[in-house]
Design a protein around this nucleic acid. Structure first.
Length: 558
RNA sequence: AGCGGGGUGGGGCAGCCUGGUCAGCCCGCCGGGCUCAUAACCCGGAGGUCGGUGGUUCAAAUCCACCCCCCGCUACCA
């Protein structure tokens, strides 16, 4: 039996995640965590709201409220949305959690004591009106290369040139439009370059890392790492613990990544078993898996491991960083400002979560960017989720009701039937192999294959004919088919937990489908067992209706 | 610009690492079957020579070189 930390990227507590964010981290992580639990592994699945940083501080200032008021509300909304999507966190916490704050301060004290932090004076743009230093991204002006009047201090979105904020012609504060001035300030830096060697060994030695993550990281290491600033002049954040750093806070990124660690500590303490923290984070055989979008690779493959090393605490390095490519929306990038995409709250207003879970997992951007399109959505939901899976379950269960009075007949499973069960089983088992390799789309496909086999089997056995001439044979067919439905409910559970629960309920089986292990899935349903009332699991969707309703929802919300 | 990923029948993808048994899967299309089921399910068929060129090899979608096209990333936004 193994022990796993499943970590999902922390959403920034500023806006609702869209479907691309959902599949990239929380949903993928959830499927994996549920899979591990069914494998009988020890799992702790954590994430939380990332609530510090300039955007939130600036927004709070604009509204004249304390940032915490903003993040209190957003944290609750996020927690609620994840719950409604069935994301089975063991701990969904936040960076304002006292456990996290203490952990971060303690962690960086150790890194400091170990000699990996140094201070340096830098010049940075400062907005006298907002009375705050401006990160590069928050300075706007005219691009010196292409003349784009709304280039940002880090990059011009039109010509793609990388910029420094001081390159901009006519720089302005993005919040108030004032002209920023250069000011000197002191910052504390993490001496990342000193970990180049160990990092290179770690990255090149971890052959599980996806190609994109490994290659990108190795290239960065070889090009030369630079020290990373650990502090900011923001007031909203975790106070830096370094001597002389009063008034400085820890840079959000360098702090929020530690949430993976602190969230496990908090979970262990709340469970009344503080020692479990060390068991998870400090046992060399614990496997820590991170689910992130590809834009987060450098932070998880380079900076996080370096920080963990620098602490000297013996924390386990990432076993894998399961990064996904991006999801596009009708061929365009998701964009809140342009209204391109679908957001988690809207999705739940349109359909039950398993519809989204199915589509997103079947379309998961694993090796290249994938595209959400309504026509594809309609096709997959109607043709696969509804017609293949939903209809198979329904036709089997209604047959038990109408021909056997709702009682699974005590048919002896014959040769053909046991061959079919074996075939179904081999696909089910293959789905587990795919999952171990983080190929969730194929894993899901293999589970769906069980339903396809079931449909084929029913057609070839034709129990509606059998029952007129050979009730025994019909009984065998139906008991076999019911057993396949059971197999399906267990194997589909990580992907579609709500539907799995419905199927399990209609089968009226004992226990909890979320806890039952894969091994149990293969035990045939005994003859004489009475099932519940079958109800269709899904219904077909119409993209015109959905699009129209989405527009309605947006109108209502203003 | 550098780096990474991708280009396979009408659409969406797998196969490529470990060359031959690979041209596969889902959808769509055409034809047929069935009627237990949510006009669902099942069977058969047409359709691709695997972005281009050149090479390695007895043999290449699969290895090598060069070229073309699409997308993304490039670290102090989170």
């Amino acid at each position: 039996m193994g022990r796993w930390i499943v970590a999902s990227a922390w959403p920034y507590a500023y806006s609702i995640p869209h479907l691309g964010n959902l599949i990239g981290a929380p949903l993928s992580a959830d499927v994996f965590a549920r899979f591990l639990r069914k494998m009988g592994e020890e799992v702790v699945f954590v994430s939380g709201s990332d609530e510090h940083g300039t955007p939130i501080e600036a927004e709070a200032r604009r509204r004249g409220i304390h940032p915490r008021e903003l993040t209190d509300e957003m944290h609750e909304r996020l927690r609620d949305l994840f719950r409604r999507f069935g994301i089975s966190y063991d701990n969904y916490t936040r960076t304002e959690s006292p456990v996290h704050v203490d952990f971060v301060r303690d962690f960086y004290s150790k890194v400091y004591d170990n000699g990996y932090v140094f201070e340096r004076e830098v010049e940075q743009l400062y907005c006298p009106n907002c009375r705050m230093f401006l990160p590069d991204r928050f300075v706007t002006g005219t691009c010196p290369y292409c003349g784009n009047p709304s280039a940002y201090g880090d990059q011009c979105d039109r010509c793609g040139k990388l910029l420094k904020p001081t390159d901009l012609i006519g720089p302005r504060c993005v919040f108030c439009g004032s002209t920023p001035v250069l000011r000197r300030t002191k910052h504390w830096f993490f001496d990342l370059p000193r970990f180049a060697g160990p990092l290179e060994d770690y990255v090149s030695g971890n052959e599980r890392l996806p190609d994109n993550a490994r290659n990108m990281s190795l290239a960065m290491i070889r090009e030369g790492l630079e020290p990373r600033s650990l502090t900011r002049d923001n007031s909203w954040g975790i106070p830096a613990p370094f001597p002389g750093a009063e008034g400085k806070t820890i840079y959000v990124w360098m702090e929020a990544v530690l949430g993976y660690v602190s969230a496990v500590r908090e979970w262990a303490e709340e469970a009344g078993d503080p020692a479990a923290f060390d068991t998870y984070w400090k046992s060399p055989d614990t496997r820590a898996v991170y689910f992130i979008g590809k834009d987060n690779i450098p932070f998880h493959v380079i900076i996080l491991p370096a920080l963990l090393m620098a602490s000297g605490e013996g924390y386990v390095l990432p076993y894998n960083v399961a990064s996904t490519e991006f999801l596009m929306y009708e061929g365009m990038k998701f964009s809140k400002s342009k209204g391109v995409g679908i957001w988690m709250d809207e999705a739940l207003d349109l359909l039950e979560p398993d519809y989204w879970r199915y589509y997103l997992l079947a379309t998961r951007p694993e090796r290249k960017d994938a595209n959400f399109s309504w026509s594809d959505f309609e096709e997959k939901i109607n043709g696969e989720l509804n017609d293949v899976l939903g209809n198979f379950v329904h036709r089997v269960l209604t047959f038990v009701r109408s021909r056997f009075g709702g009682v699974v007949p005590d048919g002896e499973i014959d040769g053909e039937s046991s061959e079919t069960l074996a075939e179904a089983r081999s696909h089910a088992e293959r789905s587990l192999e795919e999952m171990k390799g983080f190929r969730m789309r194929r894993s899901l496909q293999e589970v769906m294959e069980v339903a396809r086999i079931g449909n084929r089997y029913l057609n070839s056995r034709a129990p509606w004919d059998q029952i007129r001439v050979d009730r025994e044979a019909a009984a065998a067919t139906i008991r076999t088919a019911v057993s396949m439905v059971k197999m399906l409910s267990v194997f589909i559970e990580p992907f579609l937990p709500f539907s799995a629960e419905k199927i399990w309920g209609m089968l009226a089986l004992d226990g909890d489908v979320h806890r039952v292990t894969y091994g149990e899935a293969f035990n045939p349903v005994p003859g004489g067992h009475e099932i519940g009332e079958p109800r269709p699991l899904f219904s077909k969707v119409s993209r015109e209706d959905l699009i129209a309703r989405l527009e309605e929802i947006r109108r209502d919300r203003g």
